[in-house]
Amino acid sequence: MVDKQARRIAEFIEPLRVEPGSHVDLAKDFDPRYKARVKKRDGAELLRTGVGLLAEYQAKLAAQDSYGVLFCLQAIDAGGKDGTIRHVMSGVNPQGVHVSSFKVPSAEELDHDYLWRYAQRLPARGDIAIFNRSHYEEVLVVRVHPENLDRQRLPEEAKGRDVWTHRYRAINDWERYLCENGFKVVKIFLNLSEEEQRTRFLKRIDLPEKNWKFSAADVRERERWDDYQRAFSEMLSATSTPWAPWYVVPADRKWFARICAAAVLVHTLMEIDPRYPTVGKKARKELRAVRRQLEDEAPAGAARDPYAAEHRPGRGKERP
């Protein structure tokens, strides 16, 4: 059953995967309105299933304490990152999930290499870390706005036309290092259309409770739409690797984007296949001794082992 479910999820997300080594033209290769023949009326149940599986595998991940997961979420403004995190992670244990949102780097962060601040927020073993925007900002926003590169005070030999090629290589190497040390990297790009972004911006203006989410700077960034699309396309082409592939999730329909994000994350955890730890013979012997002691403490009329009495007929009978 588990193998069949894993195959179905893998088949579902395969059209979203950026084949390592391929050349991506975002506008031509991925449709923001794609929905894989899934009907919206079925969306809520599919998301519940995904959230349930995610909770199950997260519990095993935490118990095994061998692997960690880094979930990178990238999108243009109004792409739906916050809502995706809120819905997809709704059923997990919050103690094992940590969300980091990266804003303009501080003076201290600018005094270090560009990956330094991201390395500070990596997951521990057994945990899931979510990057709401990630180290890929360093080849997206910084590329579209080269003045940000100047503020990083790079030495002269680190500048030049090859700076982006060098960064792609460094990011790929860093992610490979993480994967080889037991930290899986999941990367999702929420692919939003220009018209859907316009609609969402207007909604943020029209609804008073959403005004706080809107900034005039968002519209100024929208004027660089084509520049961002080129940067996204090159990023996907250069950094989708066998050890950390990109998944381009169609984001015009929020309900479908959340199903896809949950499926990608569940697929990653299924590949890890975490297991609850088992105890040895000595520990099992101690557990049996402790069980007998606790059963002997049952008051009159109470089941010796209430759980066993409920779940395993014939055991845990009442104390006379």
Rank of each mutant, 00 (worst) to 15 (best):
G280R: 05
D206C: 01
A107M: 04
V249W: 05
K81S: 03
E297C: 14
Q197K: 08
A283K: 07
P274Y: 03
L294N: 12
E11D: 14
D29M: 07
A59S: 13
K254A: 00
W246F: 02
K81P: 06
G80E: 03
R169I: 14
A261E: 02
D29H: 14
D77A: 02
L265K: 07
D111A: 14
H112E: 15
E286G: 15
K28I: 00
G96C: 04
K285M: 07
K281A: 15
P32Y: 02
E156W: 13
V51W: 01
K317Q: 11
Y67T: 00
E297G: 13
V99D: 05
R17G: 02
E195Q: 14
K28F: 00
I259C: 05
R7D: 12
W164G: 05
V99L: 13
H98C: 12
K282H: 15
L154H: 11
D273H: 12
L207V: 10
H135G: 03
F102N: 06
V142F: 13
H135Q: 13
L190V: 06
L53N: 09
I130V: 15
A251H: 06
A44C: 00
V2Y: 11
L149R: 14
I259W: 05
D113Y: 10
E137F: 09
E156Q: 14
Y177W: 11
K81M: 07
S106Q: 07
H98F: 10
L149P: 04
E147F: 10
R292L: 15
F30N: 00
S237L: 00
K28Y: 00
H98Q: 13
E157R: 13
I171P: 01
G80Y: 03
V88W: 01
E271F: 11
K187V: 04
R133F: 10
R41L: 07
D29Y: 02
D150H: 10
R48F: 02
A244Q: 09
E196G: 08
H112Q: 15
P242K: 01
P313I: 09
G50F: 06
E19S: 00
G126E: 06
R275M: 09
A244Y: 06
E286P: 13
L73G: 01
S193K: 12
Q197T: 10
A27W: 00
L265Q: 00
K4W: 12
A262M: 03
E286D: 15
G160D: 08
V2E: 13
W246K: 04
W255H: 05
H23N: 06
S90M: 04
R86L: 02
A124K: 12
D111G: 15
I13Q: 07
E109D: 14
Q152F: 15
G21W: 12
W164R: 05
I76E: 07
